[in-house]
Amino acid sequence: MLIAAKDKGEIRKVKAQLSEEFEMKDLGPAKKILGMEILRDRKTSKLYLSQKRYIEKLLCKFNIRSAKPVSTPLAAHFRLSSALSPQSDDEIEYMSHVPYSGAVGSLMYAMVCSRPDLSYAVSAVSRYMANPGKEHWKAVQWILRYLRGTTDVCLQFGRTEGGVIGYVDADFAGDLDRRRSLTGYVFTIEGCAISWKATLQTTVALSTTEAEYMAITEACKEAIWLKGLFSELNEDLQISTVFCDSQSAIFLTKDQMFHERTKHIDIRYHFVRDIIARGDIVVSKISTHENPADMMTKSLPITKFEHCLDLVGVHC
């Protein structure tokens, strides 16, 4: 169990209450929990969150320890769709012996805990859990090969005085099967990722602006929750800012009128207008080149991908 509070007095109080009700052992400052290793550098006031040992076990389990590493989680030549699912009895028989679900589940745990760089790739391969094909399995192996060369990657946290900053992006009609768009966002504190997500939108967007608008709405929902959580740990929380690289979508969040091109959008996405009008969250424009959420929605060249990692505090 991890206990966090504004001051150590509150932590001691909770420990005392728990010890009165249960048998418990105080292990001191957290060093490891649920496969995540917590390393501290007191001199530089840095904290590192790593899953190196978990990833090494994962690579050993799926026989990837001796494979040649690759530089990105998912290469651009992978065009995954349900059309690549097994068509013949031989393919079905072959895939029945492939541990696809286990591999994707293991990758998903690493992604959720400390590896935002895996978000897009894991989102892509997880869509075909029910009926994966050989090409889908090759994509999973590619992700494992990427982990082979990045076992030392970790999240780096430092002292924070600022608020929560979010970045959001959308990939219009990125799903080849149903032409749904992909939402990707990442939130940071002092340049280090604390929350991230890459997921298909539930409805089909009719334009890039609409896709970006729905992505902003999802990001603002996460920002509201993070703002509440962070305010419990830090009273001096500033207004949350969400950055988006679509100027037209930003205008749409501030326009209270319903037009021919937007009146069909589900009403639940329009709640973001009230949030922004109240000043709870600010949505601002950012250059595509400086938007780290870009890596959450598509495969990127290695240079741009590494730049995105630097922007969210993912370091080797």
Rank of each mutant, 00 (worst) to 15 (best):
G162D: 11
S195E: 02
S123G: 13
A139W: 01
C154S: 05
K32W: 15
T262Q: 01
C113S: 05
S81D: 06
H289R: 15
V314M: 13
C316F: 09
H289M: 14
T209L: 12
V164W: 03
L18E: 03
L59V: 01
K57A: 07
H259M: 04
K68T: 09
Y167N: 02
K304I: 08
I189L: 15
P116Y: 01
Q17K: 13
T188K: 06
F172Y: 14
C192W: 14
I33S: 15
S106D: 07
L182H: 06
H264F: 04
R79F: 12
E91N: 13
L107F: 08
D171Q: 12
V283F: 04
L84K: 08
M1G: 11
T253A: 02
E20H: 11
L144G: 01
A223Y: 01
L84E: 10
L84H: 08
T72H: 02
S207V: 08
L155M: 04
T241G: 11
G102M: 02
R179G: 15
W137K: 00
G279S: 05
M295A: 01
L147S: 05
A205L: 06
T297Q: 03
I265V: 00
T183E: 08
F243S: 04
L206R: 13
E222V: 01
D177L: 10
E20P: 08
N63G: 06
A173I: 01
Y54I: 07
E23P: 11
V164A: 01
T217I: 03
R180I: 05
E290F: 13
Q201A: 08
A293H: 04
Y269K: 01
R12W: 12
M295H: 00
T288R: 10
H259P: 03
V186M: 04
G28L: 11
